[in-house]
């Protein structure tokens, strides 16, 4: 966890940051380069929003108007009905909410087992769990489809939800790392007092873990909201489509209406950006944690 704290911008982090370039000129150049790179990364988003606020005729002119005037806000309600945005959002939430519950249930229990109970073979199992993260999903995609097809589950949300009740290596790892930081003495004392493992889990481990549970919830929401391949394979009926899948209907014509497509894109991206901005520390800590110790 010590590594994570350095990422944040407390006074400690400021003190540690190394001034590589002794000269003021070098520093200014680096600063400028950083700003230019950031502008380049932000430009696609600017282009997206700018296009979404144009009248259709202004989309196809060169050189383009960078800031359209007057702003065409009505593109947004048009895009909202051009594809059934509302039902796609509801569909996505119908997958996301049970998935989050499943992940919180299965991964906290598993992570507790891996982090807090000593048993023969535990570390080998944990290593196996970690290595499954490396295996391409494409490898098991075909047989998993066949399994769900034989269960009669394709065309429903079940293939997208049920596996989450059986653990996910990434979250297990994230939670385990957090559970390890809770002093063992607390568990030992509770055991002496006759508390069961499940009692320790519920009363000692879960209460201080609220931040990491929030992180897992956000990650899983983002994953379901953004997932493309699994819904593509398992959802057969258009009225079941998720946002990420349904967005491509904006392309479903010879010449896409780019102002509508960009408005749709903006609306699809907005929830994840809001979640991210509100909880960016949690996101960044999660990513960095898995990177450093992985």
């Amino acid at each position: 966890m010590a590594n994570i704290e350095k990422l944040t911008t407390g006074p400690a982090a400021q003190g540690r940051t190394v001034q590589m370039n002794g000269s003021a000129l070098g520093k200014a150049v680096a600063y400028l380069a950083g700003l230019i790179a950031a502008a380049a990364f932000a430009l696609p988003f600017f282009w997206m929003v700018s296009t979404s606020l144009k009248v259709p005729g202004d989309v196809f002119i060169s050189p383009p108007t960078w800031i359209p005037w007057p702003l065409q806000w009505q593109t947004y309600p048009e895009a909202w009905t051009f594809i059934p945005f509302f039902s796609y959002t509801i569909n996505t939430l119908q997958i996301a909410i049970p998935s989050i519950i499943g992940i919180l249930f299965s991964c906290t229990l598993t992570a507790y087992g891996f982090a807090r109970i000593r048993a023969w073979g535990r570390d080998v199992l944990f290593f196996i769990c970690l290595s499954t993260m490396m295996i391409p999903w494409a490898v098991t995609m075909v047989p998993v489809f066949v399994i769900f097809k034989n269960l009669g589950w394709t065309g429903t949300y079940l293939p997208l939800i049920v596996p989450n009740f059986l653990g996910s290596a990434f979250y297990i790892f994230l939670l385990r790392q957090f559970f390890l930081t809770i002093p063992m003495e607390l568990s030992d004392a509770a055991r002496v007092d006759g508390c069961s493992e499940l009692g320790i889990f519920a009363r000692i481990i879960l209460p201080p873990s609220k931040p990491v549970l929030a992180t897992v919830t956000l990650f899983e929401f983002n994953r379901v909201w953004s997932d493309y391949l699994a819904p593509l394979i398992f959802l057969t009926r258009q009225e079941h489509f998720t946002i990420a899948l349904g967005l491509t209907y904006f392309l479903d014509r010879d010449r896409p209406l780019w102002n509508l497509a960009m408005a749709g894109n903006t609306m699809a991206i907005l929830p994840v950006i809001i979640v991210f901005v509100l909880a960016q520390r949690a996101f960044i800590e999660g990513i960095t944690l898995t990177g450093i110790k992985g």
Partner: peptide, 24 residues
């Protein structure tokens, strides 16, 4: 903090939205 966020945001948005944006 702002700059770090700008570099990170592209990977939290749905890949289909990214793909449509880059087609344009």
């Amino acid at each position: 903090v702002l700059l770090r966020m700008i570099f990170y945001i592209p990977i939290v948005v749905p890949i289909s939205a990214t793909a449509i944006l880059w087609m344009w």
